[in-house]
């Protein structure tokens, strides 16, 4: 059947496309206007020149990497075990990984501070000292919070990956050929999960690097709080940093897009 291109479709497409592009374009042009009467990269130079920028950006990157490592260590064996041995527990585990949609970051950090700023006692026995007393233990709390935030994305990415490769049969095949658990996980499951793990990791990275809420209330020198501070004092530098941050998000999503092509998207997030 011949179908005509409808004005209706074009109208909504163009409207959406403008919504995408105008703020980006506006921010970009704005970021070039630090020097009066001419376009220049002065705002970028000034933003990058601030030693606090490098410091906080590095700190957030380290936290992001730690988050990814802990999240993977927690999620991969769990998801694998659920697939293979305790499929009955799947709804429960899935429910837990979706908790961050019910408990927003602001509530989560509220609860974390309330719980871990005093010694944790169970039946009168102290099992954990206060975690907010030293910066190292606060960093640990920060990473734990980020792992919670990353759970829905990480678990879904790994779960999709496991679903796509028929873990049960692969594991049994490996066992019948004499492989032990370590070999199976390391040489069979993980290599087949590569693209799923990478997309989960990059999504986590995109969420964590500019994260404001948890970092602010735990009082850590992260990139998000630094950005918010810059926003209060500078005019053009925030625009430059917004463009840089958009570029980083784009990079992360672009890589995810490439590695998971044809496997169904995992790039939808929530805030």
């Amino acid at each position: 059947m011949a179908r005509r291109v409808s004005w209706f479709a074009w109208f909504w497409y163009v409207l959406g496309a403008l919504y995408f592009i105008i703020p980006l374009w506006g921010t970009f042009v704005f970021s070039l206007q630090k020097e009066r009467g001419t376009f220049s990269l002065a705002a970028y130079q000034s933003a990058f020149a601030d030693p606090k920028f490098a410091e906080t950006f590095l700190y957030s990157n380290v936290m992001a990497v730690l988050t990814i490592i802990f999240s993977l260590l927690l999620v991969v064996p769990t998801a694998y075990w659920v697939h293979l041995r305790v499929p009955r527990m799947r709804p429960v585990v899935e429910f837990i990984t979706l908790m961050p949609f019910v408990i927003p970051a602001i509530v989560l950090v509220f609860g974390l501070i309330k719980t871990f700023s005093r010694p944790l006692t169970i039946l009168g026995v102290t099992v954990l000292p206060p975690l907010t007393n030293s910066s190292l233990s606060t960093d640990f709390l920060l990473v734990a919070g980020y792992v919670v935030l990353s759970l829905p994305y990480m678990y879904r990415a790994v779960d999709n990956g496991l679903r796509a490769m028929d873990v049960g049969t692969l594991t049994e095949a490996a066992q019948s050929l004499g492989a032990g658990w370590g070999t199976i996980l390391w040489r069979i499951i993980l290599p087949n999960l590569r693209s799923a793990l990478l997309s989960g990791a990059l999504l986590t990275f995109a969420i964590v690097v500019g994260e404001l809420t948890i970092a602010t209330f735990l009082g850590r020198p992260a990139f998000g709080p630094y950005l918010a501070l810059i926003g209060n004092h500078k005019v053009y530098e925030p625009a430059a940093l917004a463009i840089v941050s958009f570029g980083l998000t784009w990079l992360a999503m672009g890589i995810i897009d490439r590695v998971t092509r044809g496997q169904g998207g995992t790039t939808t997030g929530a805030h």
């Binding site: 704005f30 917004a242 998000t249 992360a252 999503m253 897009d257």
Partner: peptide, 20 residues
Amino acid sequence: AGVASNFAGVPLAFAFISTL
């Protein structure tokens, strides 16, 4: 859309301040 749906927080606020 994948990028925009993950573009939130402080940088998004900056973008709109620079635009509107």
